[in-house]
Design a binder for these strands. Structure first.
Lengths: 135, 135
DNA sequence: GTGTTTGCAAAGTGTTTGCAATTTA
DNA sequence: TAAATTGCAAACACTTTGCAAACAC
């Protein structure tokens, strides 16, 4: 487990105050590698760990961390927003059955030809979602 | 413009009754090629054409048409559902600025390597969204 | 006639916001 | 003590649902 100071510094570097809530959520999010969470799931997790954080603060924090580049938002479901602690370029499996996301190892996929953006536009990202279902 | 009977038959073949509302929406959806709509946008369009259809019916109809394979749902925005009249395999540009979708011509993109689905799972679809912003 | 479909309004879901109280620096 | 942050509850946007009236066959 990373030391307390790691989370503290990360938050400070983002220009945010290291509040009890942000530290708690940081620990959950960045304590292990490659997590995919929704606001609800993270909030539930925090409550399970007896951390007192409101759902509104979870939403705020996820957005602040995303803006600071610590998280990446993934759109796979029209019903809820997912956040990925892996901010590097990579793609996802999405299990429609239970709403789970899984990273696709970058060597496992390759986009051979990327289209040009329409006139006057720039490509911001290329997101691949492989939807999988039970066989 | 396709003849009235085309829309009528298409609806019947889906096992649905050709009601005034379904015919009206069919005309809007399938009267021209490759449309991308949201429930709200289609509802607004219908109202502009003085077609009387409730928003609830637009939602129901979009889902019924999707289930019948006449439409494909596209997930690009956590806030709203898009439906595409092009049900073939293809990908999309998404203009974050105004929420517009545009088909990517199939020759313009190619995925060289598709990952294997995890054990016991099957790939349902591979969806690529290229997000574009103003240069 | 019988079963399907519609439209309204109400309910539901996930998310954001206004604001007083609290916390941080 | 000044500014940022929190948590609650209310507001929001989009979507679904229950049900009586209207419609299709």
């Amino acid at each position: 487990m990373r030391p307390y100071s790691h989370f503290l510094d990360q938050i400070k570097e983002a220009g945010l105050r290291p509040t009890r809530q942000r530290l708690a959520l940081s620990k959950l999010l960045f304590g292990v590698e490659n997590r995919h969470v929704t606001a609800e799931s993270l909030h539930g997790e925090a409550q399970g760990e007896k951390m007192r954080v409101s759902l509104a603060t979870v939403y705020n924090t996820l957005h602040q961390f995303t803006k600071a580049g610590m998280l990446r938002e993934i759109v796979v479901d029209a019903q809820r927003s997912y956040f990925d602690t892996n901010t590097g370029s990579h793609h996802h499996f999405y299990f429609e059955k239970d709403g789970q996301l899984m990273d696709i190892n970058d060597e496992m996929i390759s986009i051979a030809k990327i289209p040009q953006a329409p006139e006057g536009m720039a490509i911001k990202s290329v997101d691949v979602v492989v939807r999988v279902v039970d066989k």
